[in-house]
């Protein structure tokens, strides 16, 4: 055993080691920082935890947000979801699926000049309430819609 090696490991600590690995090319910076990816929010297992991680513990309801999605999704692997926010100053839109293993599916940042409308497709494990969370002028608003799934899109 090389005593010098032990010392190096001890003195650098885990953060130092990560940095060393990153510079040595073992870890790309994106692995360490994940481009600011909100790991806490995406890993949250319940709606309450997810909302907390997004800083939106008590979102208000709003008639100005429309969540367009089918009432029944035959294939849970591909469920089209469109969120349309008419709220002035819409800054971000997130799509949450209550009964998925991790509710947060996607979050979109809309700079000024970009309209408050996004469309995407998501996976649903089973019939669930789907939520659109909108941040407008620093306040959070949320609407929901139940989507029935006849064939789940997770596992298998």
């Amino acid at each position: 055993m090389n005593p010098m090696r032990r010392t190096v490991l001890k003195s650098t600590g885990s953060a130092g080691l990560l940095a060393l690995l990153a510079t040595a090319g073992f870890l790309r910076p994106s692995d360490v920082l994940a481009n600011g990816w909100n790991k806490i929010a995406f890993d949250s297992k319940t709606m309450a935890e997810t909302l907390k991680a997004l800083g939106a513990s008590t979102p208000a309801s709003s008639d100005a947000i429309q969540l367009r999605a089918p009432d029944i999704a035959e294939n849970g692997a591909v469920v089209p979801i469109a969120v349309d926010s008419k709220l002035p100053g819409t800054q971000s839109i997130a799509v949450l699926i209550d009964k998925n293993p991790q509710p947060l599916a996607a979050s979109f940042e809309l700079p000024s000049g970009t309209e408050g409308t996004v469309t995407t497709r998501v996976k649903m494990g089973q019939t669930s309430d789907v939520y659109a969370l909108v941040r407008a002028d620093g306040k959070f608003y949320m609407v929901k819609k139940e989507i029935k799934v006849t064939l789940g899109g997770c596992g298998g």
């Binding site: 089209p80 979109f108 809309l110 970009t114 409308t117 497709r121 649903m124």
Partner: peptide
């Protein structure tokens, strides 16, 4: 004009639509 963070619940071969001025 748009930035997004996604989890694994976004469908295979993802589709995205938005509008900007």
């Amino acid at each position: 004009v748009l930035s997004a963070q996604w989890g694994p619940a976004v469908s295979k071969n993802p589709f995205l639509e938005f509008n900007f001025k």
